[in-house]
Every structure is written in structure tokens, then in C-alpha cells.
């Protein structure tokens, strides 16, 4: 039913590319110790944000979690406002008050991200309640990780969203680890999160989270049902973070042993950017020259933005008490 146009497929690739190049550049700059905010980079997980956000309308609202840069950018957030936030500048999207985990951009349909696991699942559900009360055709989306599915609020929210038939899409980015804890110490063997969601009467699908086209198709399918008033849906995207839980390094650089370098390299073989590019080339939807030109364009955007962000202004100490109440 959804066969995305060539233009959509090219946009999906470009979105993954923009997320990847931004996040890699920010991670490189992060090592300079000038971005003084705990940062959870999303390198490797770009296809989830890019695929889901492409399926949304401008009036829909997105909520995110601690690993939020991809969602912020895929929803149209500026690299400049993101980088400025990391640098603690007044020009940051949260004026240097939030840091990496507390981004906002309501003007482009990205409400907030937050650092507490599962917190925004309920908040997105509440926005969906408001949409249903007002009878408007808007959808709320919450992104969260597999560990959030171990929080009580996940179940409270699923139960409520399904009971009230709310227009909310819950997107679980299952990257197999909660900080350094693997799934097998956190969930019973054989757990399928989709089964849990289905037990709460949500329509649920699992998808290859490193295939941006597959994510986009699945999200579009589920969103169709949500928009038709069929109630909430759950999308589990299987993916993997390449970098450490928090910070710019690979785990092997830090001599951490909770996961192997072989495992990382196997997932890097399934790189969402390269797979999307290969698919476009194989389908004749883009040429190698075009892919390269897009990369140059993105890199230019990122370089200009991070330089301008770094040169931004510090918040005035007198503004410490702004917006307390």
C-alpha cells in the first residue's frame, strides 16, 4: 500500500546522512571538553528517527529520550541550535538550560526530550489525549529505548492509551543494551516486546531498525491505523548503538568488555547509511555523484553550524532565574 516515491527514498537517505554526519562531527568535537554536558550519541541508530519522522505530518508532535539528537534533527531541528545547546550557549534550543538530554523545538513538531527513562511515553500519551478530546487529526509519537520497557510507566501508558484509543505511536529503539546491561539480564529469555504491547491491545510490529525504508513503511502502516482512529500502535526497531552509552568513544577504546568488538563490527556491517545508499544505487534512484554531493552539502551545513554555535554567547548570569515559574 505504501510504495514510497523515489523522492521519498532520496529524502530518507538524506535524512540518515544528515544525522550521521552531524552526530559524528559532534562526537569528534565533544572530545575537546568544550561541550560540558552528558551526551548520548545516536550513531548507528539513525534509520529509526529518519524513517519514523518522514512518515509524520507537520502538525504531529514528537517526544524523545536521552539519546535524542537523531529525533530532534530528523524532525527538522537545526544543527546550530543543537550544537549551541551542547556548548551551553544562549542560542541553544533550550538556551543552555537543558543540555544534550533536554532538547526542544515545538516550532518543528519536536516537543521535548528528557533524561528519565519512560517519562515522555506518558507525556506523549497525554498530548494524544488532548488531540482526541479536540477531535483533531494529530498524532503524538514517543521514542524510547528497550530499557524503558522495564519501567512501570511504560505499562501504565500502554494501558491508558489503549483504554482510551489514543492517537499515539510508541517507537521502541531496541539497541540491546541499557547502559552496559544486556537484554538477557533484564528481560526473560525469549521476550518479544511486541507481544507485551499486543497484550495491551496495541497493534505492534517489529522491524529492522537499520533499514530506513523498512522503518518508514512500518511506521506509515501503523500511523494509518492511528489516524483512522484505531488507537495506539507500537513499533519495535531492532538497532545498535556504535558508541559508548554516554560519551564520544567506542567501548573498545575504553577497554570495556560488556560487549565484544566482533559484535560491534557485525552491526557496523549493517550500517543504516551504507545500506540506504546501496539501495538507492541499486534501484537507480541516485548516482554515486549525487550521494557524494549530498555528503558535501551536509558537511558544509554541519561545519558552518558548529562554528557558529561555538562562537555563540554565554547566557548572562543575571538570567539565572529566568523561567523558574
Amino acid at each position: 500500500m505504501h510504495s514510497p516515491t523515489i523522492e521519498t527514498r532520496r529524502r530518507l537517505y538524506q535524512s540518515v546522512l544528515r544525522l550521521r554526519r552531524t552526530e559524528e562531527r559532534l562526537a569528534a568535537l565533544y572530545r575537546d571538553q568544550e561541550m560540558r554536558t552528558p551526551t548520548h550519541f545516536g550513531v548507528g541508530q539513525e534509520a529509526v528517527a529518519a524513517g519514523v519522522c518522514e512518515a509524520l505530518d507537520a502538525q504531529d508532535v514528537v517526544y524523545s529520550h536521552h539519546r535524542c539528537h537523531n529525533h530532534y534533527l530528523a524532525r527538522g531541528g537545526s544543527v546550530f541550535a543543537l550544537a549551541a545547546e551542547l556548548y551551553g550557549r544562549d542560542e541553544g534550543c533550550s538556551r543552555g538550560r537543558g543540555g544534550s538530554v533536554h532538547l526542544t523545538g515545538p516550532d518543528h513538531g519536536f516537543m521535548i526530550s528528557s533524561a528519565i527513562l519512560g517519562q515522555t511515553i506518558a507525556v506523549a500519551t497525554g498530548s494524544a489525549l488532548a488531540f482526541k478530546m479536540d477531535g483533531v487529526p494529530r498524532v503524538a509519537v514517543a521514542f524510547f529505548g528497550d530499557a524503558a520497557c522495564e519501567e512501570g510507566i511504560f505499562y501504565e501508558s500502554l494501558n491508558y492509551a489503549a483504554t482510551h484509543g489514543l492517537p499515539v505511536l510508541l517507537v521502541c529503539e531496541n539497541n540491546l543494551y541499557s547502559t552496559e546491561s544486556p537484554l538477557q539480564v533484564r528481560q526473560p529469555s525469549g521476550t518479544q516486546l511486541c507481544e507485551r504491547a499486543a497484550a495491551f491491545k496495541l497493534r505492534a510490529e517489529q522491524v529492522d531498525g537499520n533499514d530506513v525504508f523498512a522503518v518508514h513503511q512500518a511506521a506509515s502502516r501503523l500511523l494509518d491505523g492511528v489516524r483512522q482512529g484505531r488507537g495506539p500502535a507500537f513499533l519495535e526497531c531492532m538497532t545498535y548503538r556504535w558508541l559508548e552509552h554516554v560519551g564520544p568513544c567506542f567501548d573498545h577504546e575504553m577497554n570495556r568488555s560488556y560487549r565484544s568488538r566482533e559484535e560491534l563490527e557485525a552491526w557496523m556491517e549493517r550500517c543504516p547509511l551504507r545500506r540506504a545508499g546501496d539501495a538507492l544505487l541499486a534501484q537507480g534512484a541516485a548516482t554515486r555523484d549525487e550521494l557524494e554531493a549530498w555528503r558535501v552539502d551536509v558537511d558544509h551545513e554541519v561545519e558552518e553550524a558548529v562554528a557558529r554555535a561555538k562562537a555563540g554567547s554565554w547566557p548572562e548570569p543575571e538570567s539565572l532565574f529566568d523561567n523558574v515559574y
Binding site: 521535548i112 507525556v123 506523549a124 497525554g126 498530548s127 489525549l129 478530546m133 503524538a140 501508558s157
Partner: peptide, 9 residues
């Protein structure tokens, strides 16, 4: 949280 999300809208 649901109240917060509704209030935000």
C-alpha cells in the same frame, strides 16, 4: 505525565 502532555497541547 499524561496531564503534562495534555497541558503542553
Amino acid at each position: 505525565g499524561i496531564a503534562i502532555g495534555a497541558a503542553a497541547m
